[in-house]
Design a binder for these strands. Structure first.
Lengths: 219, 219
DNA sequence: ACCTGAACACCGTTCAAGT
DNA sequence: ACCTGAACACCGTTCAAGT
């Protein structure tokens, strides 16, 4: 975890280049492979093991990197109401992760420790304690928010099976609509009636609606 | 999706046997492989392709099966308050999935369609509409609940890297406590102070606390 | 310290062939 | 219709060797 020096004859590579290659690979192929990373940076497959002990470490580092990219949005504007700031953060995280659907699919496959995850936790704690919650409740609320945000994003990207960037939201909703319209009303009457709403579960509207109900529950 | 007849000379196998073997494999090895399933049921690797078109179909079917196993608990007791019934359902789903950690890790890697998922949706809709929500809000609330339950379970099992059954909850909390106690207080003062609470994020307490805040937000 | 070549023990999937 | 044997094109990872 500490940045131990690596004074040797390192020439062409760096952890960050490998992670960038990994992300490109996930974006283009939908899959991550050590050999693919190595090929993309022009090196023998086993050279990757100089930088990461194994594949799961690559995934953990990539998830950390994706989660930790800085938000310079309304979240840091301390003059805004705390709910608005949390909404801004949640929308920012979603936008950033959904831009890399296959990488986002790896989000919940690794433990959530790591410094950048802690940094996110710290900022959320700050806002919630500032909003008047006592520290223990603020911590619990932080986790509730993280579960919601990451869970919603994971389900959203899981809905798409093809690699590559997600189609526009409205296209994905239309496709879901066609699926849910086939629910047999004799067996599942309420679900069949709710098909139009269910089609929009992956929409920004639903994402914000859920977030707001959750924030309502915290007040 | 329909149960099309398979009148041929099928002898030893069935979809369910394959899925049972897949689950055993995940429980013991922490990984799923077509070849592993075939070996476990005593057949050539490619024989599996008579029953499932590819590996992702096996995963989808397994997730469906795990999600759909019937709950004969307090959930179906219509004399109980609706919040208690939802809590009972949420606890039941968690207990069932956490019993198979590696399989639970696959939960959010496949689209959530399938009849048993719809059945779960229908039951939740029933309870929420019975509680007085209008149908559209009830549908949105259903998805909010599913996101929360599956997200919390996914993060809980992701915390454990070794295959096999999860250690007792208190042991896992103790290990998390040791991790979070090392958060540097100079950089992350609030997170460092919240370490005892954060260690319990994977506890039943936190799970129910979050669920209740969420139900509060629905009223 | 970093990288390579070669190898090991696996994968998912396809194809032709058997019954 | 169901299963097998053999093969294809891959994997992650390790090891000995080079600089």
């Amino acid at each position: 975890m500490a940045t131990r020096g690596r004074p040797g004859p390192r020439r062409t590579l760096s952890e960050d280049e490998l992670l960038a290659a990994a992300l490109e690979l996930l974006d283009s192929e939908g899959q991550l492979s050590i050999r693919g990373i190595a090929a993309k940076v022009g090196v023998a497959p086993n050279a990757v093991y100089t930088y990461f002990p194994d594949k799961s470490a690559v995934i953990r580092a990539l998830v950390e990197k994706l989660l930790g990219e800085s938000d310079t949005g309304a979240f840091t504007d301390e003059t805004k109401p705390w709910r608005d700031r949390i909404e801004a953060l949640a929308l920012g995280v979603r936008e950033r992760l959904v831009a890399h659907p296959s990488a986002a699919g790896l989000l919940m496959s690794a433990p959530m420790d790591g410094p950048r995850t802690t940094a996110l936790n710290e900022r959320l704690l700050d806002v919630l304690i500032g909003a008047g919650l006592d520290p223990a409740d603020a911590a619990r609320a932080t986790y509730l928010l993280i579960v919601y945000v990451l869970g919603a994003i994971a389900l959203e990207v899981a809905d798409e099976t093809d690699p590559g960037p997600l189609p526009p939201e409205e296209d994905r909703i239309t496709r879901r609509r066609a699926t849910f319209d086939q629910i047999p009303a004799e067996i599942f009457p309420r679900s069949a009636a709710a098909a139009p709403t269910m089609a929009r579960f992956i929409s920004t509207d639903q994402y914000l609606w859920g977030l707001r109900r959750l924030l309502d529950g915290l007040e």
